[in-house]
Design a protein around this nucleic acid. Structure first.
Lengths: 149, 149
DNA sequence: AGAATCTCTATAGAAGAAGTAGACAAAGAA
DNA sequence: TTCTTTGTCTACTTCTTCTATAGAGATTCT
């Protein structure tokens, strides 16, 4: 299970990706649009800023914007920034590797190999899906909606 | 991340699977062999008993044994029994489906479809791997070890 | 009766999740 | 300058879950 925080982060970034050409976006706008508790979102955006995914400007006319191109920010990395490893056990994580304390012998651990397959399958999906991939779908939806009017 | 409890449960069941023909096995034996805190293991085995995976006998010469064939107990189900859904978000779980409260419109949720793919990939692996599949590997390892003597 | 086992109830400390409050700092506008 | 708008920082809270542990109780065999 991924945390609400990670989901909020994804939603906020997707919102920023959609408005990418519009310049700075207010925290309160994102919070209202995506129904994220405002103060909680502030904390999340600070995390994402530390991770250099977004940048901000203070004061009047301030706000947040993406640092990188939405086509270069993968969902996998966003989740990692907030929740840590995608792997189901530490001992098969690439970026957050740690020996499991309950593991007697990693080399022959029967569970490890299986979990490695789960990790690989998960990463294969999440690390090859980028924010921009969503925006395409959304753009299409917005277009369709416009056509209906 | 799966919990230690789920890993302990898997290890305990794998141990029981290996000894499947030997009859009842003591909690303390499993705990010692797999380095699981004894009292914690007791609680886990009670859970597994409620789920009808293992059965027990009290008193002298008592102990635990598997109820079903190791070829019919999947890793996916064991993890579900202890940790709940394998899915990364509630709204894509088959057995534990629940609407996510932070989801505005499930039908068009951009994150949901992606997470569904993760769920499917994970379940595909864990629901088609059974306790017996491990035992084969272990049997081979034990055999190799015996040959070395 | 006594020893060996599983069983049940209760408790507890640590960590993490999810969120809130309020003072503070910076930037622009009047 | 001073006011307003915005993001920043620190601290706290509340709830839940994880990871156990303690000890009395029930059952079975010898």
């Amino acid at each position: 299970m991924i945390s609400k925080k990670a989901k909020y982060a994804l939603k906020a970034l997707l919102y920023l990706a959609k408005q990418h050409d519009r310049g700075l976006v207010l925290i309160s706008e994102i919070a209202a649009a995506e129904r994220i508790p405002r103060k909680f979102l502030e904390a999340i955006l600070v995390d994402l800023k530390v991770q250099q995914v977004v940048q901000s400007t203070r004061g009047k006319n301030g706000g947040y914007t993406l640092v990188k191109d939405p086509a270069q920010i993968s969902v996998g990395n966003v989740i990692r920034m907030i929740d840590g490893p995608l792997a189901p056990v530490h001992c098969v994580s690439h970026l957050y590797y740690k020996k499991c304390d309950e593991c007697i012998d990693e080399a022959t651990c029967e569970i490890r190999l299986l979990m490695k397959r789960v990790r690989d399958a998960t990463c294969e999906i999440l690390d090859t899906t980028y924010l921009a991939d969503f925006s395409k779908v959304t753009a299409l939806m917005i277009e369709e909606e416009a056509n209906q009017i």
